[in-house]
Design a protein around this nucleic acid. Structure first.
Length: 454
RNA sequence: GUGGCUGUAGCUCAGUCGGUUAGAGCAUCGGAUUGUGGUUCCGAGGGUCGCGGGUUCGAUUCCCGUCAGCCACCCCA
């Protein structure tokens, strides 16, 4: 209690770090499968990188300070400005389309609660230089495939998609004035989280006629894409974006993730910079915060320099995702990477100098095995073998290894429940010498033990 | 930033209608005549009962404040 991490910050004990690594592994594996390459930027950035686009009110949620060189700086609260700056700086030199991903730790000074801390790790996946909606489909497919990689199914997680251009066209067709659109977005974004009367009141304040209010709320509370097509497919303002979304949904189906996706016009995304297709991933039970969110932001790179390139991306945090994996029991059982061998004392231990035990350990490590031992010659020779073997098993070793009376070294498997555990013996002197053939036979035996334990 | 609920061992929790030295399980460490197991048994360490103040002969227990956690707003990554 006396010493703990700052509020909203986490200590990662080995089991927790193993879980984090499990998520990172899935992120990297899938990103690589989709031919994205990893990059990173500085965790500390000039303050105005964030205030320039979002205004000064964001400073209240930043970890910012003045450094010893009198620069106003901030811990990064999101990756997109860094990414945009990096791409813009070399926009002409980069081969397009750019497919980059990163796993930054992000910081935000806010009241911490479930699913939201003051620090988290967030996978960022971005594509720059591709206008086609195929890129949008590719991007969402990455996010969904990560769910699969972690053992989640379309029954656990849903992808909700929308398109700001399409929504805009539909609203204009319905008779919403251009100036009222932002207010309508704000209401639609909150329609599931605030009482209906509040939505009605806000739309009324924005100047919408009661009949129009009803239409807008019906759109926000669930319509099929087929219904939208039937109603607005021929409207001049909506026709083109609707066709684009139709192609997008077809691409998603062809990429094998169609089952996960549904249209939801209330997905607006809070950030002002999205310009086209947007999406979020939610747990299907609706108990947790969004797992992931992203979309197209075609005008953002222009704001960070002379790069006028279409772009799209998403962010996926480790916190909500971790909670979902916990709820579904999807963490791997063996969190820690098992150690190959644990040296214990055998009947032959006393016949040899203690240094031989260390030489054996070194020879095994030299052959690439991971090896643990007691780090005390006294305990090695005095502690009951039974306790040593027990300790080796608890420490996560696959096999115990010891000197036998007859001059051999023997390994005994700690896997499985059989009373007659598998053993493998090898000449001690050759093993200590690091004899390749002898150690290769040990490696083969170890692999057999692991395979048969599965 | 606003409001509500909750703080006892590393973890999960008992308990004290205010009264001697605050308990259990799990975990950790040592051991059970030193070569084969996830069992069992014995033993040990570990707590200013979140922190500060008040009431009281006496506070872990009641009251106030504060900090932290959870939840709902706010906001969103």
């Amino acid at each position: 209690m006396s010493s703990s991490a700052l509020p909203g910050f986490r200590d990662f004990y080995p089991d927790e770090l193993a879980r984090r690594a499990h998520v990172f592994r899935a992120w990297r594996a899938v990103a690589h499968r989709y031919a994205f390459v990893e990059y990173d930027g500085p965790p500390l950035e000039p303050l105005d990188l964030y205030t320039k686009k979002s205004g000064d009110e964001i400073v209240g949620q930043l970890y910012n300070f003045t450094d010893k060189g009198k620069r106003d700086v901030a811990l990064r609260p999101e990756m997109t400005p860094t990414f945009a700056r990096m791409v813009a700086a070399r926009a002409n030199a980069l081969r397009k389309p750019v497919r980059w991903f990163s796993i930054p730790q992000l910081f935000r000074y806010e009241r911490a609660q479930r699913g939201r801390l003051r620090e988290h790790f967030q996978l960022n996946v971005d594509i720059v230089g591709e206008e086609s909606e195929v890129a949008d489909a590719e991007l969402l497919a990455v996010a969904i495939d990560i769910m699969r990689e972690l053992g989640l199914t379309a029954r656990d997680v849903r992808a909700r998609v929308s398109d700001r251009r399409m929504l805009n066209g539909i609203l204009l067709t319905l008779g919403v004035a251009e100036a009222q659109v932002p207010a309508v977005y704000g209401v639609m974004d909150k329609v599931a989280r605030q009482p209906r009367e509040a939505s009605v009141a806000k739309l009324g304040e924005a100047g919408l006629a009661p009949a129009l209010v009803e239409r807008v709320l019906r759109l926000a509370s669930g319509v099929t894409f087929a219904a939208l097509q039937a109603e607005f497919g021929e409207a001049p303002a909506a026709r083109e974006p609707i066709e684009r979304v139709a192609r997008y949904l077809d691409h998603l189906a062809a990429l094998g993730v169609g089952d996960w996706v549904e249209l939801d016009l209330s997905i607006v995304r809070g950030l002002a910079y999205y310009t086209g297709i947007v999406f979020e991933l939610f747990d299907a039970k609706g108990e947790l915060r969004a797992i992931c969110g992203g979309g197209r932001y075609d005008t953002l790179l222009r704001a960070f320099g002379n790069a006028d390139l279409p772009a799209l991306g998403f962010g996926m945090g480790d916190v909500v995702l971790g909670e979902l994996l916990t709820e579904r029991g999807l963490w791997p059982a063996d969190a820690q990477e098992p150690v190959d061998f644990h040296l214990v004392a055998g009947n032959g231990a006393g016949q040899r100098p203690y240094a031989d035990a260390l030489r054996l350990v070194a020879a095994l490590r030299g052959a690439g095995f991971s090896v643990n031992h007691a780090m005390s010659g006294e305990r090695y020779l005095s502690q009951a073998t039974r306790n040593q073997v027990d300790g080796a098993r608890k420490a996560g070793a696959t096999s115990a290894i010891y000197f036998r009376e007859d001059g051999a070294v023997e390994a005994v498997s700690l896997l499985g429940k059989m009373t007659g555990a598998a053993t493998h013996s090898l000449p001690a002197d050759a093993a200590i010498r690091g004899d390749q053939a002898v150690l290769d036979s040990l490696r083969e035996w170890l692999h057999q033990q692991r395979d048969s334990a599965r």
